[in-house]
């Protein structure tokens, strides 16, 4: 399959910001089934973009802005090829006690410790888990059951949860977005000793799958002998050629598509995103069509002398609050 992916984010602020850093985790992963043929990342302020890698080795783009503005937009475009996989290769219903022993061994636990420990967003106590594994079924079947259990018992609904919603809150609400489905999936899989990681990416929505117009999320689990397999509880699917993976991590925090640090007096900001995934023919030329052209934002005058000084005082106050809260550890 061939896809064109377009991501666009527009940030607006209620006051001028003086300086800002943004970090983007958007580029589809290069792996055995995915190949990025073309990539482009632009921002409306024409600020310099540099690249780095995150903790899990995924490439990130960084934008460091040092001029005052109150609106900025970012656009990323990718052309990728994705191999079609055999949907039956993942299936495995053979109950193997060796697997059960293996996932309980200390060496296995150490190797996968990162994806076995609970994080704040995947915190769930064993007695709070609403779904339990059936030891007479294979690991894969259990996970697949979990996948459809989530699909049938929770509804996809935006604006009922936010980025800090925990599995416990999601269970109470009974509805949420792909992050919430995924976090609960991870929590239950980890409670059952299965390494599970949060996966972010793009979903080809041509087939009517849910995932709204933002980035999609699903879970990847490690099954002995099989390796990592993706489960998408929002659509009750195994992640195959419709799922274009970007990154994985312990939870959403590791995979947030955009992170920002803003300096200035702005107290409120708004971000709007759009994501478009389009299938294309392999024979189409590798050209990214520019949807709009961006004029550079007008350069606003530097804040006045007095205002700058006030600003410094403001920053100092902000710092003051934190400094009082941070103990220089083991001091005293």
């Amino acid at each position: 399959m061939e896809y064109t992916i377009k991501y666009k984010a527009v940030n607006t602020y209620d006051a001028l910001i003086d300086e800002a850093f943004w970090q983007f985790l958007l580029r589809p992963e290069e792996n055995t089934t995915q190949n990025v043929r073309m990539a482009r990342f632009t921002n409306s302020a024409n600020a310099i973009v540099d690249t780095s890698t995150n903790t899990f080795g995924f490439p990130i783009c960084r934008v460091h802005l040092k001029k005052p503005l109150d609106k900025i937009s970012f656009e990323a475009s990718y052309i990728i090829s994705k191999q079609i996989e055999n949907p039956f290769s993942a299936l495995d219903s053979v109950v193997n006690s060796v697997h059960q022993d293996q996932i309980r061994s200390i060496d296995f636990k150490i190797e996968h410790e990162r994806f076995l420990s609970a994080t704040q967003l995947t915190q769930l106590l064993a007695d709070q888990a609403p779904f339990s594994f059936d030891q007479s079924r294979s690991l894969f079947d259990n996970l697949n059951d979990l996948n459809s259990w989530l699909y049938h018992n929770f509804s996809f609904k935006t604006k009922v949860t936010d980025v800090n919603t925990t599995p416990v809150e999601f269970i109470e609400k009974g509805a949420g977005v792909c992050q919430d489905f995924t976090h609960l999936f991870l929590a239950i899989a980890r409670l059952n000793h299965i390494p599970a990681r949060y996966t972010s990416g793009y979903l080809h929505q041509g087939n009517g799958y849910q995932g709204d117009s933002q980035m999609h999320a699903w879970a990847e689990c490690y099954i002995p002998e099989k390796g990592w397999i993706g489960f998408d509880p929002v659509n009750n699917l195994i992640a195959l050629e419709n799922h274009i993976k970007v990154a994985h991590g312990k939870d959403y925090t590791d995979c947030a598509p955009i992170k920002g640090v803003i300096y200035g007096n702005s107290k409120k900001n708004e971000t709007t995103y759009t994501v478009e995934v389009e299938a294309r023919e392999a024979s189409d030329p590798d050209v990214i069509l520019t949807s709009e052209t961006y004029a550079p934002m007008p350069f606003k005058q530097q804040l006045a002398f007095q205002a700058q000084w006030q600003q410094q005082q403001y920053q100092q106050q902000q710092q003051l609050r934190q400094q009082q809260n941070t103990t220089d550890t083991s001091q005293n």
């Binding site: 850093f21 970090q23 780095s52 992170k259 640090v261 710092q319 934190q322 941070t326 220089d328």
Partner: peptide, 22 residues
């Protein structure tokens, strides 16, 4: 002389005003 959590707002506590992004 700042705690781990405050070192880098992009990696640790996102509200840290004491650290250095990146």
């Amino acid at each position: 002389r700042i705690d781990d959590a405050f070192l880098d707002p992009l990696e640790f506590r996102p509200d840290s005003a004491l650290g250095v992004p990146g």
